[in-house]
Design a protein around this nucleic acid. Structure first.
Lengths: 201, 201
DNA sequence: TCGCCTATTGTGGATAACCGCAAGTCGCGC
DNA sequence: GCGCGACTTGCGGTTATCCACAATAGGCGA
């Protein structure tokens, strides 16, 4: 799925003109006449950015934004609004909207922002995929291995770990070796550093 | 230095009324008639938040904000503006302003935001001081200890470290023990986790 | 010059980590 | 029932870590 700008606006004239504008600048677009339509089509694979009208029949722009975030989407959202509302703009940006643009807008400026938003999404996705691979490794661990890992990361000795889990030291050693193997590390320090990358989010 | 709201506005009437409002709600204030005056008084010890008019004679609010950030201040800034300017609000929030409020404002709402800003600053400072203490510990290490620490964090064996630094294993052990002592940790894993907190910034 | 800190090294022993080999139980799906 | 994977344990040996005791050497301020 390549990166696109997803236009959500209930005004067909806007969809058409904005779509044409972006396409003419080399930005692929898909247009939706309502927030509900876009939400129905949305999957976490959709890459690019969303250009979203504030006021629409049915679900409003901010509501759709909220829904997307609740579904875990990190897609950059650019709001379009026809009536300069400072509190709404402030609230949107504070909630993590990528931008907030008043209509009528300068064509080049909007295209620039859309392009910047798409680039941001692309960067986020590549960063997330490297973290994701670590998480994929993590997912392959068995229950016991995960338990042992946590205690290892707590800096505890195998002896102590064995005690806390009520198993023999030898068993701890086996789990430890297995989880190191699965995580592709050779020492506990490497493991700690690999995982700290996740915590930074 | 206790936390205060620092009011910067060239309108004496606003300074007085706002100061009175905040003081009446238990928020200590200091008022400055210009951005230059506040900047001259500013030190990184000042804690609390800044309430800043956008338009002032001399340096503008956004300019002062920029100056503060360049000086490394993380002080939350609340902008006050008399003329709803969406692009300016968006730009300010994206640059990290705490809030952007239009005049005339609702008294209680503004007080709430000032209080929230001060709380944010307080939290930031306590978090920063705990990181700072780690950095202080780091600063107490000797050259060799630092070198050894890096190699330890690279997950290398004492034997390898000794080899790379062209010293004996025993010496590495000594440095290792000393640096663990100075950093207040007992294992390499703890050290890695302590330091990863710095990386998250 | 004396004392303190840093850096260095050695010996030897206690403790912990790491590993191959071997083997037992348990639950689950074919 | 059989095989597979997760979990379990023991034995014995190698390697690494951790530490106490002991000692040498250079730099630097009192």
């Amino acid at each position: 799925m390549s990166a696109r700008a997803y236009l959500v606006d209930d005004d067909e004239a806007i969809r058409d003109s904005l779509g044409w504008l972006l396409e003419s600048k080399g930005v692929a677009c898909l247009a939706y006449p309502s927030a509900e339509d876009f939400l129905a089509a949305w999957t976490c694979e959709l890459a690019g950015c969303v250009v979203l009208d504030i006021r629409m029949g049915g679900m409003s722009g901010p509501e759709l934004f909220e829904q997307l975030r609740q579904r875990g989407s990190q897609l950059p959202v650019i709001f379009l609004t026809g009536h300069g509302d400072v509190p709404m703009a402030v609230a949107a940006i504070k909630k993590g909207a990528f931008d907030f643009v008043e209509k009528p807008f300068n064509d080049n400026e909007l295209v620039d922002r859309v392009v910047a938003a798409i680039e941001t999404d692309t960067r986020q996705r590549s960063a997330a995929s490297s973290l994701g691979s670590t998480q994929a490794l993590l997912a392959r661990l068995t229950q016991r291995e995960r338990q042992v890992m946590e205690l290892v990361l707590a800096g505890k000795f195998n002896k102590v770990i064995a005690d806390e889990l009520n198993i023999s030291m030898r068993t701890v050693e086996v789990h430890r070796a297995n989880l190191f193997e699965k995580m592709g590390v050779k020492t506990a320090v490497e493991l700690a550093q690999r995982l700290s990358a996740l915590g930074e989010r």
